[in-house]
Design a protein around this nucleic acid. Structure first.
Lengths: 225, 225
DNA sequence: CTAACAGGTAACAATTTCTTAATCCTATTC
DNA sequence: GAATAGGATTAAGAAATTGTTACCTGTTAG
């Protein structure tokens, strides 16, 4: 999956850096802003997947910022987690009503921060109802079980191989170039040499035989029709 | 579908009325109680579909109430959402460990309250008729007694381990990722490091052997078919 | 009061998977 | 029939993921 981008808006530079460090370690891309105004500008430019927003800031505070974001068609749907000093009850209520999606009181442990971010992201990801089971040729690719079944044989492929096969099979007949495969299976803005696809294709063939994935020289691969 | 009944237990009468008003508007039937003791009595009589439970109350507080409910065969499976004033960290931790299914800090917007209620209900609806006894492979998982039986051996698993096993087994074959397991077994909006699942899996394997739960690297766990 | 248990976190070991890069093949072209 | 181009194959190191153990906190049973 593509790397998720998080925008952190806080006027305390140290905290900003600390959070950045930890989020990056978790594999998120991080954008930073030091006040609401800047935050909104960056949000508009980069459309982050989530915003961590301090409430008390100079120039434009977090609540104003949310207000603006919720009125902007492009930003409306981005989940927001508030950062706030502990015990400021009144602010909290306002925040909730203005449309934040979660609250975190500072200081908070990194672990908790990460897990709440993931939880919120997950909540927003949910509407995902692509079919989870494909039947092509003589095999069934079952995403729920993460298994490929042929007759009474079961093949358990590693994640990348499975996802690659699933993607190819779900577009049966269509030739997909390596870059497309990388983007869809590995994720956008992820840097991996495109030949990596070859290796995975080979491993799939090794396990299932080579009658499913065809090579189209000079272009890419295709799941046979 | 029959109208869903929600029992609200809180000592603040005003809040009770407010919640009642809003829930009724949403089409729920509402029962009210002003302390834990009364709450349990009413729960026993009416078997509500969900309980909204304040933690701080006179006579018998929410935590005691949960404890009792979780030991009662008839009430054990009723989902509980805690209500609590924000910032009481200690209580929070206790609450989560005692087996609530979600956790809401007051004050909260009506919209959020409703959506959480629906989320929890959806979660508990899934396993139709939620059988309380599963027989898979050579074991019987008895939810009424929190017991796993194999041949003439009986294994008494701690609550979390049991619930985890039960959940996995009730979705035999399906790969479940850690976050899903946390949400379903620990509860939504409960923030626990996802590796906690690993440790519990290990403990289950330690007791029952490792021929039941399979690891699917990069994805999650699956109960073997 | 102490010991044992439950649940959660953290650290590091063990393992698997992924990626790269080098080399081998094979068709095609000139 | 070499040269070339693009893919296949392989092996090795890196990276990611899980297993395992230890430890901490709070609770429960004697």
């Amino acid at each position: 999956m593509a790397k998720q981008t998080i925008l952190v808006v806080d006027d305390e530079k140290d905290l900003l850096d600390l959070i950045e460090y930890n989020l990056k370690k978790e594999g998120f891309a991080v954008l930073k802003a030091e006040n609401g105004e800047e935050g909104i500008k960056i949000a508009k430019e980069h459309k982050p997947d989530l915003v961590l927003l301090d409430i008390m800031m100079p120039k434009m505070d977090g609540l104003e910022a949310v207000e603006i974001m919720r009125q902007d068609d492009d930003l409306r749907s981005i989940p927001i987690i508030f950062l706030t000093a502990r015990g400021d009850e009144k602010t909290e209520v306002e925040g909730l009503n203005k449309g934040g999606d979660d609250y975190i009181t500072k200081p908070i442990s990194t672990t908790k921060l990460i897990s709440r971010i993931k939880a919120v992201m997950r909540r927003f990801d949910e509407p995902e109802d692509s079919p989870n089971k494909l039947e092509v040729h003589d095999i069934t690719i079952d995403r729920d079980r993460y298994l490929v079944i042929r007759g009474n044989e079961e093949f358990q492929l590693p994640r990348k191989e499975f996802e690659l096969l699933f993607f190819l099979a779900s577009r049966k007949g269509k030739v997909l170039d390596r870059q497309t495969l990388l983007n869809k299976v590995w994720g956008d803005n992820i840097y991996v040499v495109d030949r990596t696809v070859d290796v995975h294709v080979r491993k799939i063939r090794e396990k299932l035989g080579d009658h499913y994935i065809e090579t189209v020289k000079g272009v890419g691969y295709r799941f046979k029709e």
